[in-house]
Structure formats: C-alpha cells, structure tokens
Design a protein around this nucleic acid. Sequence first.
DNA 1: GCAAATTTTGACCGGTTGGACAAACGTTAG
DNA 2: CTAACGTTTGTCCAACCGGTCAAAATTTGC
Lengths: 213, 213
Amino acid sequence: MTDTMEGSAPRRTRIQQEKRELILEAALEVFSANGFRGSTIDQIAEAAGMSKPNLLYYFRRKEDIHETLMQRLLDTWLAPLRELDDIGDPLTELRSYIRRKLEMARDFPRESRLFANEILQGAPRMKPMLEGELKTLVDEKAAVIKGWMRAGKIARTDPWHLIFSIWATTQHYADFDVQVRAVLGADRGGDGRFEDAARFLEQLFLDGLKPKG
Amino acid sequence: MTDTMEGSAPRRTRIQQEKRELILEAALEVFSANGFRGSTIDQIAEAAGMSKPNLLYYFRRKEDIHETLMQRLLDTWLAPLRELDDIGDPLTELRSYIRRKLEMARDFPRESRLFANEILQGAPRMKPMLEGELKTLVDEKAAVIKGWMRAGKIARTDPWHLIFSIWATTQHYADFDVQVRAVLGADRGGDGRFEDAARFLEQLFLDGLKPKG
DNA sequence: GCAAATTTTGACCGGTTGGACAAACGTTAG
DNA sequence: CTAACGTTTGTCCAACCGGTCAAAATTTGC
C-alpha cells in the first residue's frame, strides 16, 4: 500500500473495495442511530466485524468515513427529485414524487436519519453541497413547477415551499418513526402506517381539507 | 445543603432557583446545537458563566439537566395542540393551530431541535412520555377532528396523519433551517421566509394543489 | 515456492470528558 | 459575632476515544 487512498485516482484492491463497503454499511447503521459525535470508531469497527486499527487502515480518520457517506447520500437522496420532469401530467408527476419519497422513508430510514442528523447540527460538513448541488437542483425543479402553475395545471403557490412540505411530510415517517409509532400505538402503528400515510398525503396535496362541494 | 435536590419535594433557595434556570437556559443552547452526546458539561458551564464543579453542584449528572429540560419541553411543545378545541369553526381552528405551530418553530427553534434530536436518536429518554402523555393528547384531539369530519365540516381523512403532517411541515422550518436557507438563498431566505411558509401552508392544508374550477 | 506488497493485530499514547472531593469562601439567622 | 449552612473553586481521577506504530499474518505476482 503506497497509496494514500484519497485524492482523484485511488486505485484499490478487491479486498479494499469490499472492506470499505462493509465499513460504510456499518457506519451508516451506527452514525444514523447515534449521530457523528455520538458514534465511536470502536462501535463501527465492531459492527463491521473488524478491529479498530484495521478499520483505520481503510479510513484514516473517522471524518473520512462520514464524508464518504455524505457524498453518496446526497445523490441517492435527490434521485426522486431528479426524476420529476416536464413530461406527463403535473398532478401525476407530483403524486408519484410524493410516493417515491415516502417509499424512500420506508426503505431507507437510516439514510434519512443520517441526513437529518447532519442538517440538525447545522450541516457542518454538508453546507457546501446544500448551497451548491441541492440549491441548483431545487431551483431548476421549482422553475418546472412554476411552468405548470402558469399553464393552469396546478394551483399557484410557492414551489420552493411546496418542495419543502413534501420533504418534511415524507421524511417525517423515517426521522420521527419512534414518535409516529408511539402515537399510533401497537395496532395502528404496524406495517400499514405507510399505506395510511400515502393515502393521507395524496389527499392532502391534491385536495386539502376543505369539504367537497 | 442536606437535600438531594431530587424527588417529590425539593425545597430550594433563591440562588438555587436562579442558577438552575441559568443552567437550563445554557443547556438548551448547547444541547440543541450539538445533541446530548455532542455536548460537554464544560460547554454548558461556560455558557452559564460558571465552573464545571459549580454546575455539578446544582445538577449532579449531565443526564439530570437533559431530563429536566425534556420534562419542561413536552409541556410547552404541546401547548398549541392543547388549545385546539371544539369551539369555533373547524377550518379556522386548524388554520390557527398551524399558525401557532409555525410561530413556535420561528420563535423557539432551539426547543424544536432539542426535541428532534431526542426523537431521532430513538427517544431513549422520552419514549415513556410519548407513549403516555403525548399519545393520550393526540388521540383525544383526533377524536375531535373525527367529529368535524362526521359533521361534514372538513374533508374525511386520517386525523392522526393530519396531525403528523402539521408537525412535520411546521417543525421543518426550525429543524432543517440551514437547509431551507441554503435552498432559498440569501435573498428569499431572509426573515420573510416564515410568512411565505405561512401563506403556503394555509393554502396547502385548505385547498391542496388542484387548480381551481 | 518465494519475495514483495497488502492486511491484520496488540500495545500504546495523549487528549478529553464526566464526575468526585475536600478545602475555601460567602451568607444568614440567632 | 459566630456558628451553621450554602456556594464556589482547584485538584484530581478513571474511563473513554481517536489515532499511531511496529510487528505479525496473509495474500499476491512472478
């Protein structure tokens, strides 16, 4: 190993690739449950089934693991929004965006919590990505939505806050899962809660609360 | 000081009351910004303008501070929901509940983040309160809302998920503040963002996104 | 099969952190 | 004034934690 494993072109052996994946998976588990400062290298190493020095052979610092995780996270996390485009019926597009986001909250709660943890702490390591990549994408999609509004396809509102509200309502089911389950109780808090949420959110975003007629 | 400062009837001197308040205020600042494990007693002591051993004279353990903060938090946090009642027009009631919650996100972001931090970590110290006090209150209010639905005053949906969505959308502006500001940018992310949010949320919850007519 | 490169491990280190403690200092009531 | 009580501080400790290092074990290329 003469390489520093960082920089633009880190060539890696098979073992390195596998072990790095193993570590990142373990770190996702630990970081998402305890936050960055609440997690120890030992915990991650144990979750990955290796010793601490061994882990530090693959990632020289705790921060490096977190950073790598963050970079990957943003991509997968924004994928649903990237898919939102001008083709197809606007209301259908929005409905399926909401559905996809809710599915992500259900299937990748750890990723959601990792993200939430980072933002909650003021995004010390992610701020640049938020102001760059994220803002660019959201502005772009906001423009698309504005087009729909001008065309009279959906009601006129603030597209940015619309996107926020979709993020908030869907991610809530991952980030605040304990609370949701505590409130719904054993019977209603079971697996069905995501379908209930999907039905509710569809109605909320399409029709609001005013009674029909 | 012969008392342990805990238990059912802790009589306290004037200085003790003042200093404890000072510490709790400092701890709110520190805990909400760094989480429980990310905060040190030293940080809290410095923020409160006293030495660490001095702080530990008033709260014997770091956990005691956090616990006290949590107990107070739930009460103030649920106050807006407690005010939601059967008197008055349902849509107006819900609208002002949303407004109150949004005002809390604006005026008490530290409390919101402290709460979010606790829930995100699986509510290790708050679970009992969630399953007890919180669930009871929400169930009660869900019943009120159900009444409104039966009376045809508002559209029929799941009252519990309705409450979740109000929590999620409003608290988002406190908990994800950095993200909101990063996306809105310097110009739109200023003080006006809460009014924009208020307008948007009112429209969303009342009318949804379907175009008029 | 063997040498070079890679991977793994145990021992160790310095800094931080939560907390204990006794001594010093301040306050208050008689 | 003074004794009892309440408050503050400096010092200290043990556990934890991020990270180093050299040596041992293993894998890989020839």
